[in-house]
Design a protein around this nucleic acid. Structure first.
Lengths: 177, 177
DNA sequence: GCACTACTGAAACACTCGTGTCAGTGGAGG
DNA sequence: CCTCCACTGACACGAGTGTTTCAGTAGTGC
């Protein structure tokens, strides 16, 4: 059970990594930026790895909250894309991509399994949104895998180019209603 | 014009980063692994940043060679996916994703523009593969953007789960012939 | 008042990092 | 032979890393 001070510092650190990236964060600059000290961070989180784990869990909590908020049923993909393409969410999504790539390069450590976990989370949401009669068919699996690929590929494009208009138009032509 | 020794060491370093990642490579371990020394690497590449730039250029050369090899015309997407999903190419593609994410988090430095550049490279190949009458229409742009998203999203899924069967099946249902 | 817990500050330790300095080495061309 | 040039080895420098040690301080419950 995290203490009040711990969650407070975690929130501040989370805001910090959203703009500075998580891959090469280091304790002293982070502590200075959020008005703390390395001593306290290590006291509360045990080690740097513990802090990174907590931050990844924090980011994942945001993601799960989103999925819960979007709900299920027809139109999920469209609703998901509205959320993904909102400029306000760009820092979070860049952080998400960073963690994703990192967990592939370095399968050990605090990143472990992050990429696989998000694939499964999203696939599950898409699955629940499918009509019952296709949910457990091969065609259903193929369809939601394709929807997920479309969303993530579009996200990659958007993050790199910022061209929301082009990417949103591309998605519009590709979605089953 | 790179010397013989320079290209030799670059190749060795390239093989090294394909398995160790490029984001947090450091000179001493790298030099030791490829039978060289930090002194020589700095002599040949000027600085660590110069070396990283050279390595990114090397990776990009691989990518451009692929695109040239795949050619253009009907069936490009399918051919591209065959190449992307080949297990032998996984280290290269992981490296690619790493560089992509990095260039978004840290827009300065040697990574600058990497993500945007690859988006444009691939879109251009897809464009050239389209029939002339749609090439310059909004529908053509939307279609190739969608194809690119599909490929990249599928790649993300594949790199995380390794489930080539599911992802390939998902792509098969989604491609215009 | 007193113990106890939660937190904090200062300083040090044992690294690793990229880079610079200075001195070479071996071979090719005049 | 002698000079030039590409390359290499050993070592040190200053900065930054995560972590530890030791010494506190504020607040809470008894």
């Amino acid at each position: 059970m995290p203490s009040a001070r711990e969650t407070e510092l975690l929130e501040a650190a989370y805001r910090y990594v959203l703009t500075h990236g998580l891959a090469d964060v280091s304790l002293r600059p982070l502590a200075a930026a959020i008005g703390s000290s390395t001593r306290v961070l290590l006291y509360l989180f045990g080690s740097k790895e513990g802090l990174v784990k907590a931050l990844l869990a924090r980011a994942r909590a945001d993601e799960l909250a989103l999925l819960a908020d979007i709900g299920t049923g027809p139109g999920v993909v469209r609703r998901l894309w509205v959320w993904l393409s909102a400029p306000a969410h760009r820092p979070l999504l860049t952080l998400w991509l960073e963690a994703y790539a990192r967990s592939l390069v370095e399968p050990d450590g605090p990143w472990a399994g992050f990429a696989r976990a998000t694939v499964e989370d999203w696939l599950e949401v898409l699955r629940t949104s499918q009509p019952e009669e296709v949910r457990d068919t091969a065609a259903g699996l193929a369809l939601r895998t394709r929807e997920l690929a479309l969303l993530r590929g579009a996200l990659l494009d958007l993050l790199a180019t910022g061209d929301g208009e082009r990417v949103t138009a591309a998605l519009a032509t590709g979605l089953v209603p």
